[in-house]
Amino acid sequence: MKEEFKVISKFIEEKSRVLDVGCGDGILMEYLSKNKVVDVRGLEISKEKVKKCLSKGLAVIEGDAENDLKQFPDLSFDYVILSQTLQAFMSPEKVIENLLRVGKKVIVTIPNFGHWKVRLDLLFKGEMPVTKNLPYQWYNTPNLHMCTIQDFYNFCNNKGINIYKTISLNGEKISNISNSNLKYKNLISELGIFLLEK
């Protein structure tokens, strides 16, 4: 399983209710339901992936976060997870608002556009960056709203969203991000994992 999912599952306490938004093939959901006593639900836009999840008996519904989160009542989950999909929404701002409405705590993972390779691509090649975590060309990317770890920090601060914890993921290296090392981590992290609360 991906390092990212290991970090996420460490955040989640036993006996909690979890919603995985954009749950994909349900890998994280399966891991959580097998290794932790949690009640886990999923929301996924791809029919193929929804069918895979349902074939594993997972409680996944076909839908997208921008239209279908509204059906969940306020604070109906202990944790809501959004893994590497924030940048693909038309309105990430509204999605985050909705995640914080539905979940008591929210875990958001973002591919970091502030990573040094990304910066170098643009600086030296003068081309839109194509990396392992961002494998698309500018003309076919589903990623409409790329941001950096620093951007997301600023966003949370401006919105009054509490950041409980931030983890940097660089390859398999896991480290904490704090105010003091933020500038540096924003340069070397491929992914940022945020634990948020309203």
């Binding site: 639900r41 029919k47 929804v50 069918k51 999840c53 409680a59 076909e62 969940f72 009542p73």
Partner: peptide
């Protein structure tokens, strides 16, 4: 029906088959 079930936190799966 899915929405009504989600409103009460029921265990629900849903897919629209093409």
């Amino acid at each position: 029906i899915v929405i009504a079930l989600n409103a009460i936190g029921a265990d629900v799966g849903f897919v629209e088959i093409k």
